[in-house]
Design a protein around this nucleic acid. Sequence first.
DNA 1: GAATGAACCTGCCAGC
DNA 2: TGCTGGCAGGTTCATT
Length: 267
Amino acid sequence: MPELPEVESIKRSLSSNIVGQKLENYKIYDHRTNRYNTKKPTIKESLSGISRKGKLLIFDFEHYSIIFHLGMSGRIQVNDKKNKHTRARFYFDKDTVNFDDIRRFGFINIIKAELKIDYLNKIGPDVLEISTKQSRIIIDKSKKSKSLIKDFILNQKYMSGIGNIYANEILFASRIHPETKVNALSSNNWKDFFNNTKKIMRLAIKNNGTTLSDMTYFLPYGEFGSNQNFLKIYSKTNCFNCEHIIDKIYINQRATYFCRKCQKLKN
DNA sequence: GAATGAACCTGCCAGC
DNA sequence: TGCTGGCAGGTTCATT
């Protein structure tokens, strides 16, 4: 499932090859992938850069930005044949970029370049870039919330980039029970949380992201990620630290793994 | 305004 | 063998 590290890995892989190329044409085949676009502007410009915020991947042109959200099963493929899951194709002067998405949770949004900042400001700060000031704002918001920590950190309006797999990993590393009310967290909990988030995300980027057994995620040129070898709690049966049996519960319909010995509930 | 839950979507797998 | 139901989960929208 593409979360921050997977999107960042895709961005890095594409940047060295596609940036600078001129977009000649593009096609979006699937109405659901295209659900937020009202127009199909002609973009015959060079790709000036590729950026990312949270789980969003952005192709930057002089007058337009093409925003990709990969959803659960979206991926970017370079110079691959069109297949039944190809939802869009971008024809650059040298290479062709496919947007494939089996489950069609992803989307492509084409906006004018000057609207990009406002668009991205609708989601919270990227968890790799959170400043001290931004972390204080997040903690202030948490004090007014009755949500569970697991729900809170998955909500992209507070902070962006964390998905279900890394939420489990970060809470385990921070020894926070996923059902802890967010307003009950101490300042030390938050300090651990922010530190572990950056640590876990950086390691996952170094490993090119996490490719689970369903093999849904891989990089634009076909390489798999290797961070699945470094997961400590997600989809595991015994605790990495104490060998205790790991509990699996559902919070907001999402699989949640935790060790009741290492992550005590303090509400 | 915040919290909650359903809907969207497809491939895979277990059970019958 | 073939069918059915459950599961995976990010986001939006409707409801409470």
